[in-house]
Amino acid sequence: MTIASSASTKTGRLALSERIPLVPVVRALVRRSLVAITRTPSALAPILLMPIFFMISFSGSYSAITRIPGFPTDNIYNWFVPYACVQGAAFSGIGVGFTTARDLENGFFDRLRLAPSGRPALIIGPLGISVIRASFPFVTVLPIGFLLGADFPGFGGLFMLAMVSAMVSGISGLWALGVVFRLQSQRSLGLVQIGIFSTLFLSIGQVPLSVMDGWLHGAARVNPTTNLLRMARQGFLEGVTWEMTWPGLIAGIAMLSLLGLFAITGFRKVEK
């Protein structure tokens, strides 16, 4: 027995040399999730079909709002297609919450915790799954949006949308993990959904700030999601600019940091 392993036996923690490296564990967790998706494709319905439905119904119902003075485009699809992609990315976090809550309820998460891997893998793994899931609506909503009449935003615009989708999936995934780690039940997913829906609703998801009135204007102005949506939409509206990009980056990084802390402190509650 090595010195390191005897020390680990005494403290109950594994020495760094004995732990499985982070990357293979994260990769295994991501692969497990992808296999689960192929076995139950219905789980993909919310992140694939809902954004497509929202894109079509919002664009159809609210097509006339582009005639309101101050609306930044006369093509309703340019407004709602990137929003639908971001929505799909946000829903991917809910899926990760479901998986983790189920693992917590059936005891599989305890077995993961007992495995000789670093704790960060149990947060980074689900986060990776969330980001991969976010790419599904990105590749389904966009082609349909272009077919319906959305303008091509250029590769810069696409990159911005992809970056925001990745950040939003991470944000929603961390939010879901934080809640699920604390409440350790699939029922807590209702709270996760309410948080995500409210954040999206109380932003410039449906109309720009210049068209809003009343309390929603105040709420959307301070909601960091507004900056993320501006960053995501810029290629579809007036072209990619640094002025529209940096507030989104800062909002994304700040939300990831805060919700990362929320998830980590939640994970510590599971450990206790």
Binding site: V207, V211, L216, H217
Partner: peptide, 18 residues
């Protein structure tokens, strides 16, 4: 909740033709 948001977001649309 949806109504509260929509009433604020689309309040100016009442002036639209139709």
């Amino acid at each position: 909740l949806i109504t509260a948001v929509s009433a604020s977001a689309f309040s100016r649309s009442t002036s639209l033709q139709g």
